[in-house]
Amino acid sequence: MKNISMKSTQLIEDSYTNYHHSVYLYIYYRIAHKEEAEDLAQDVYVRLMDYDRMLCTETIKYFIFTIARNLVTDYLRRYYKRQEVTSYLYEHTVAYTNETELRVVANDLE
C-alpha cells in the first residue's frame, strides 16, 4: 500500500516537471489570463492527486490534459455566467437621481 502511494507520488512529481509548462500554455491559450492560467495549471495537479490509485505511466499525460480541459470548461462556464449576470444587472438597474434637486429645478422653471 505504501509502495503504491510512493510510486504514484513520484509519478505525479515527474509528470509535473515534464508537462507543467505544456499544461499552462494550453490553459493560457484557452482563457488568455496569465494569473488564472497559472492557478488552473496548479489545480490540475491538485486534482491529479485525488486519482493516485488510478495512475500509470502510460495514461498520466492523458489524465492531466483531461483534467485541464475540464477545469477550463468549468472556468469558462463560470466566467460567461458572471458576464451574463453583470450585463443583466447593468441593463436593469434603475438610475436613481436626486428628486429634491429635480423638484427645485422644475419649480424654478415654472
Rank of each mutant, 00 (worst) to 15 (best):
M6Q: 14
K7L: 04
K7N: 05
S8P: 12
S8K: 02
T9H: 02
Q10H: 08
I12G: 05
I12V: 15
D14Y: 07
D14A: 09
S15K: 07
S15G: 02
S15Q: 03
S15W: 09
T17S: 09
T17F: 14
T17E: 15
Y19L: 11
H20R: 14
H21Q: 15
S22A: 09
V23F: 02
I27L: 04
I27K: 02
Y28Q: 11
R30L: 12
I31D: 08
H33M: 13
K34A: 13
E35G: 03
E36K: 15
E36Y: 09
A37H: 05
A37I: 08
E38S: 10
E38Y: 04
E38D: 12
D39T: 07
L40E: 05
L40A: 08
D43Y: 01
V44I: 10
V44R: 03
Y45L: 08
V46Y: 06
M49A: 12
M49H: 05
M49P: 00
M49V: 04
Y51M: 09
Y51W: 03
D52S: 08
M54H: 10
M54I: 09
M54S: 11
T57Q: 14
T57C: 07
E58I: 08
E58D: 14
T59N: 15
T59E: 13
I60Q: 02
F63V: 14
F63W: 12
T66H: 13
R69D: 00
R69S: 06
L71R: 01
D74F: 10
L76I: 09
Y79W: 10
Y79I: 01
K81M: 12
Q83W: 00
T97K: 01
T97N: 11
L102Y: 02
L102Q: 10
L102E: 10
V104I: 12
V104Y: 07
A106R: 15
N107L: 14
N107M: 08
